[in-house]
């Protein structure tokens, strides 16, 4: 399911990214790759703050919608 559907505080595992190449590469550098656990820390009008590999990332709704996760 898309990351946007995940509820705050639940752990899920990233399993895909449908963003275009440049964004995907950038996300890879930030640790967003398949198989990595992700938690939503807070949500604000669709924009998210997530925890990945111990760091906190802000993702806009658009980017979050392109990531799929598995609970």
């Amino acid at each position: 399911m898309p990351l946007t559907m995940l509820s705050v505080g639940k752990v899920a595992v990233i399993n895909g990214c449908r963003a275009k190449d440049t964004t995907r590469k950038y996300l890879e550098g930030l640790g967003i790759v398949p198989g990595v656990p992700i938690i939503i820390i807070s949500e604000m009008g669709g924009n998210l703050i997530v925890s990945v590999k111990g760091s906190r990332l802000a993702l806009s709704k658009g980017v979050a919608g392109q990531l799929t996760v598995q609970v």
Binding site: A19, T23, L30, R56, L57, A58, L59, S60, G62, V63
Partner: peptide
Amino acid sequence: APFVMELPP
């Protein structure tokens, strides 16, 4: 640019 930003502690 899609908004992706690290939030430092």
